[in-house]
Design a protein around this nucleic acid. Structure first.
Lengths: 227, 227
DNA sequence: GTACTCCTCGATACACTGTATCGCAGTAGC
DNA sequence: GCTACTGCGATACAGTGTATCGAGGAGTAC
């Protein structure tokens, strides 16, 4: 192509300054607004006015970015309180609240080992709170609380999303799932489920979480006292 | 285009017989062999010798297919035992073992409300086992056990995968993560973590799971006895 | 001041995804 | 024998993560 018709190279704007932190923050914002599946490298790059491939200077893989996002949320979890029970409770509640602020967190939590600095700091706080307990029991105790929190958060967020997905009011939900459940119950195969759904008081999510956590901590308390 | 150069329509082979069940079984096989991300509608259709769009007669959406896969796994979970504690334990262990057979199950569990017939049956068994317990406590108890199982399974599978990903032997893992952790510990910011990692007996996954579940069931036992 | 080298950027490309559209072939009804 | 319908699947679309590679800017050696 002749020089005359060859376009000049666009004189680049000063390349936008970038950093791992900025990338992660942008990704978190995107995920907060529109969910995890709205997070793509192209969209992040777009939001930063940058070519998509530029990001690969800062991360090797999208999974790595997700790990960084998870660790960023862990940074929001600040333990508090005195004594192992208070600290563990505060960490659990703070984790749950972080998941409320970042629902996508529920999609990732527990899905990969968390070795980022903030996750380690969280773990450190938990283990430190268990100082004095038999060293061989500390690990499984922390693992159990983690497991409970992971599962409870996922359950809760999943339910919340399902409710929200059925339009903003509850009517749509009852119209689609109600009849299905009624039909299922009508088969007579789920009598216990039926009575519980019909007769039991429906606790809200806060109470359910706290009650379950209380059970677990009670059991742990008894276990480490006996050990 | 002239007739002469227009190819005859391939005389179709008798369309392969299809069913939701067959589709789900195929998807499960694919996921068992190569993980969830190897499951695509095109691959399923390919394995069934069928056009991809054909599947949409049986499912509306890929998410629906995932729900069906999850429910198929729930069908493998058969409760056993007498008394609430035995039944809940057996359901928990069976769920964990199902996740060992289908690692991708860990990626989906807890991610969406489970309303499939097999999941309901599992729930029914749990609630039936809690017959006699105060009806208002039954639900949170079941939710707590579910939460624990979900989280424990995810944690365990995540760890197992991470170990396996570092080559088949442990050397590679120690070479990459070892130094990182050593460096982290060297900062002195994680003393409790460090002592636990260094001094504590390392329980295997079976024991960890059982111990945590035991704590939770102990707490529940105390709670429903007191209530 | 000039030539050369390196590094960094991003355009392009590739293989793949879930799914909307739509024309066509086979079947059923008359 | 014709017509209406149904269900199949080829094609298309917009999007994904990431490999490749040419070109330009920055830095260094003389």
């Amino acid at each position: 192509m002749l020089v005359w018709e060859r376009p000049e190279p666009a004189n680049r704007p000063a390349p936008a300054p970038l950093s791992r932190d900025l990338i992660v923050r942008t990704a978190v914002e995107l995920a907060d607004e529109a969910g995890l599946e709205a997070v793509s490298l192209r969209k992040i790059a777009g939001a930063l006015d940058v070519g998509p491939m530029r990001l690969y200077g800062y991360i090797d893989t999208k999974d790595e970015l997700l790990d960084l996002m998870v660790d960023a949320v862990h940074a929001e979890i600040r333990p508090a309180g005195d004594g192992w029970r208070e600290v563990l409770t505060s960490v659990a509640e703070a984790t749950r609240q972080a998941a409320h602020r970042h629902e996508w967190f529920a999609d990732l939590i527990g899905g990969r080992p968390q070795l980022g600095p903030n996750a380690l700091a969280r773990g450190e706080a938990v283990l430190a709170a268990l100082d004095g307990v038999d060293v061989d029991v500390v690990m499984p105790v922390a693992a159990a609380v983690d497991a409970y929190v992971i599962g409870a958060v996922r359950r809760e967020i999943a339910e919340r999303r399902a409710e929200r997905a059925s339009g903003l009011d509850q009517r749509q939900w009852q119209r689609t799932h109600g009849p299905y459940l009624v039909r299922m119950f009508a088969t007579g195969r789920f009598p216990a489920l039926e009575t519980v759904v019909r007769d039991a008081a429906h606790l809200d999510a806060d109470e359910t979480f706290r009650l379950g956590l209380g059970f677990l901590l009670d059991g742990i308390g008894a276990g480490i006292a006996a050990g």
